[in-house]
Computed example of a mutant assay.
Amino acid sequence: MAPIPTPPADPQDDLSAYVGLDAEGAERQARDRGWSTVRQLPPGAIITMEYRAGRLNFEVRDGTVTRSWKG
């Protein structure tokens, strides 16, 4: 029987450190720290809730990150 695949690990990162940064700078920093996908979303955006390893989500208001979460 084939082994069960292990999903790739998310980068070890302090997600709260992105809050308050400008969105473009936060995205560059996230990619430099190993996040493969970075999404910038407006407040209240309707999104799917499936979890994707390596994805970092930013809620952005007026060009500034107000919330950050993985998946």
Rank of each mutant, 00 (worst) to 15 (best):
T64I: 15
L41E: 14
T37I: 14
W69E: 15
T6A: 12
I46R: 15
V60P: 00
G54S: 11
D13Y: 00
P7L: 11
G44F: 08
G71P: 04
D10Q: 02
T48E: 12
A2W: 02
V65I: 08
P8A: 12
T64Q: 14
T64K: 15
D62Q: 13
Y51E: 10
I46C: 00
G54Y: 02
G20S: 10
D62E: 15
E50T: 09
I4Y: 07
A2F: 06
L41G: 05
T66C: 01
A53L: 03
L56M: 08
K70R: 15
V19M: 01
L56T: 12
Q12L: 12
D62M: 03
D22L: 05
T66N: 05
V38I: 06
I47T: 15
A2L: 14
L15H: 01
E24S: 07
G63M: 13
N57K: 05
D14F: 03
G20H: 10
W69Q: 10
L21Y: 07
G44V: 06
Q40G: 04
R39I: 05
L41A: 03
L15A: 08
S16I: 10
A23E: 09
R39C: 07
A53Q: 13
G71I: 05
Q29Y: 02
A53W: 01
T66F: 02
L41V: 03
V60Q: 10
V19R: 11
G25I: 04
A23Q: 08
T6R: 03
R39W: 04
G34N: 06
T48M: 07
G44R: 05
I4R: 14
T64M: 13
P3V: 05
W35A: 13
S16V: 09
G54V: 08
P5V: 09
Y18L: 09
I47A: 14
G20N: 06
A53N: 10
I47K: 04
Y18P: 02
E50H: 03
V19N: 09
R33F: 00
W35G: 14
V60G: 02
F58Q: 12
Q12N: 12
Y18S: 09
R55S: 08
R55C: 06
M1R: 05
T66W: 00
A9P: 01
R31W: 00
T6Y: 01
S16D: 13
S68P: 00
P43H: 11
R28N: 10
P7D: 09
M49W: 01
D32E: 15
L56D: 13
A2V: 12
W35L: 11
A9K: 13
K70Y: 07
P42I: 09
A45T: 06
I47G: 06
Q40Y: 00
P11Q: 03
M1A: 15
S16Y: 07
D13E: 11
T66E: 14
Q40N: 13
